[in-house]
Design a protein around this nucleic acid. Structure first.
Lengths: 239, 239
DNA sequence: CGCGATCTTGATAGGGTTCAAGGTCCGTGG
DNA sequence: CCACGGACCTTGAACCCTATCAAGATCGCG
């Protein structure tokens, strides 16, 4: 069940068999979370970290006026709250956008990894750095891209991230978010989100029906998004 | 010269004298960068990481149409491209917004720290996690706050970050950005940025003259920004 | 004193929010 | 098996926020 994480890490560096074993030993507990429930709550102080192995989840923050902003989307293989191992207190929540299956790693065991297995520790560090890199890509998209380009960038990114764990099917992937949730990702109103999506469809770039997104024209989508996957660090090198 | 980094780390955990010494030994080279020059260039593969000890710097990305989005502001004490130690290839640039003084740490030496000094390694990891946390706060501000609230949040955040290294003076701090640069931070046009700033002044929240920002009414500024410093992790605990 | 960089203001147009209403789909219970 | 309700998607219209274009004002420096 830990395979999605291994695939993730192995796209960045070679793992020794002992590192496989160590990770397996660390991820003991398993949990299922229903759609809409929090994997991790705002303000909590987790004592273990959550690895998402199945389903979609989102980091989010609620503002005083009741608005919600999603700051990250998580897919199978993402170590969703590895952050809390060192940050200690959650300053935002993480919610299941679909039924989720997760594995838990006790912080004491993670600490043990940093003490005894520096290479594996660097790869876990790297995992959090890649998510930081994704945050920067989102900031650029929010600040300086058209809404269509922003959406296109998200679709390209999700395709790339889902592909490495085998969660795509041809040019399509399962995508369980509602348009309202997508609006919370892009910082738009629901009405405008809907219009941006329909423009995209009319232009023959994507289809999105039945919780399935399909990329109809990669080249034009990539160009519109100015998508360059460098920031996802999807290549192997010694780290 | 390494003091700002020590102050930064020591706001999160206790450092042993040997860890002080190790950091000092690692930060050998020193460099000065003129305003407007890149500390680190987009697309490069740095072999050392840059610690900012004096001045302001910004991470930025240029879009095809010539727009610029600043994804992070850096102040003295920030280990600005520790990321590249593991991410390897820069997918964005880092520019000096004022004359900057930096220290360099060779990646081989950083690797040595992760091998021999796990606690210090965790603190460096933590430093990058805090910057990820700041990214998320920015995403929330860009997506779901009014422009005035967004600006207020940035002012609160900078004040808090500058304070821990002793770079504030009462309720004021030196802030060398132009309004055009600030527009690239917030993803606005220059004209609108100017209007947001003037609203803020008219409301008696801040003054901003001569590269000096002063907070005139903390309580109202904090409320407007919904600023909660939890995400900056400015408290000591074992990590 | 003159020039470039920066800040400020006005006018216009377009993008995005909000309010309102109707449509579609699907699961549930009578 | 069909009626109903709820979640989600779609559309229209009015208004406001923000970008863009254009020009003038201010500041600091050589």
């Amino acid at each position: 069940m830990i395979e999605p994480l291994l695939l993730n890490l192995e796209h960045r560096d070679v793992l020794a068999p002992s590192e496989h074993a160590l990770l397996r030993k660390t991820m003991t507990m398993s949990r299922r979370i229903a759609k809409g429930d929090d994997l991790v709550s705002d303000g909590s102080r987790p004592t273990c970290s959550t690895l998402l192995v199945q389903g979609f989840a989102a980091r989010y923050k609620i503002t005083r006026d009741g608005g919600r902003q999603i700051t990250a989307l998580h897919v199978p293989g993402d170590f969703v709250d590895l952050h809390a191992f060192l940050l200690k207190t959650m300053d935002h929540g993480i919610v299941a956008l679909s039924p989720c299956h997760v594995l838990l790693a006790d912080h004491a065991d993670l600490r043990q990894i940093t003490e005894s297995s520096p290479h594996l520790a660097r790869l876990l560090w790297l995992d959090t750095l890649v998510h930081g890199s994704i945050h920067r890509a989102w900031i650029v998209a929010m600040g300086r891209r058209s809404k269509a380009s922003h959406l296109a960038h998200i679709v390209c990114e999700l395709y790339a991230r889902l592909q490495i764990t085998g969660n795509v099917d041809g040019q399509s992937f399962h995508f369980p978010l509602s348009q309202a949730e997508m609006a919370d990702v892009m910082g738009l109103s629901l009405v405008h989100m809907n219009r941006v999506i329909q423009d995209m469809r009319r232009n023959g770039l994507i289809s999105w029906v039945n919780q399935t997104v399909s990329i109809l024209d990669w080249e034009r989508l990539r160009t519109l998004a100015e998508f360059d996957p460098t920031y996802l660090n999807l290549w192997i090198e010694p780290r």
